[in-house]
């Protein structure tokens, strides 16, 4: 696998490429996590998905531009950290579900705030939802979004982005 073009393709939104990577290392990761960290199937899946999400975010944010080793070593490296975080949560909260930790009030309030934004985003619907997701999560440039969503030009896209953000804010705060 050409790792340079792999990163480039995933960064450009190639979901098929991400799926290929997901499927390629999934089995090996789960067997490894089960053997070395005593995780069951659901926990292995949770750890693997969290690792793949982190891998994806590192690619689109530009944090990962080239592999210093190979994709497997990189993903397993993330995986080790994710498993450690999950195990720490498990130790803190032995009575809850293995990976469910009791959140502090502050954390709960932050979670609830972000859930409210997420709900407002769904309420907002497309094209605003799509535009904001492409810009803020998939880290696409205004030029790429203009082309993908067939807007007139990048200025139109930029203005629309702030209109959408303001509409989302109104839904979120329930105000003006």
């Amino acid at each position: 696998m050409d790792s340079g073009s792999l990163i480039d393709r995933i960064r450009r939104g190639d979901n098929a490429e991400l799926q290929k990577v997901y499927e390629m290392y999934r089995g090996e990761f789960m067997v490894w996590a089960n053997k070395h960290f005593d995780l069951d199937f659901e926990e292995c899946k949770e750890a693997y998905q969290l690792s793949m999400v982190q891998f994806y975010e590192n690619v689109v944010s530009g944090k990962l531009q080239v592999f210093t080793s190979d994709p497997k070593t990189y993903i397993f490296g993330i995986g080790k950290n994710k498993i450690r975080e999950l195990r720490e949560l498990r130790l803190k909260q032995p009575e809850a579900g293995r990976f469910e930790a009791e959140s502090t009030d502050e954390r709960l309030s932050r979670e609830s705030l972000l859930n409210k934004v997420e709900q407002a985003l769904h309420q907002l619907g497309d094209p605003c939802q799509k535009l904001l997701e492409l810009y803020y999560y998939k880290k696409m440039s205004l030029a790429e979004i203009t082309l993908a969503l067939e807007y007139k030009n990048t200025d139109t896209t930029k203005n629309l982005k702030y209109k959408c953000l303001n509409r989302l804010r109104k839904l979120f705060t329930g105000g003006n």
Partner: peptide, 14 residues
Amino acid sequence: DFVALKEGIEQAGR
């Protein structure tokens, strides 16, 4: 609000 919106959009994407 902006900080919360940005984080919320990221969470939704995740």
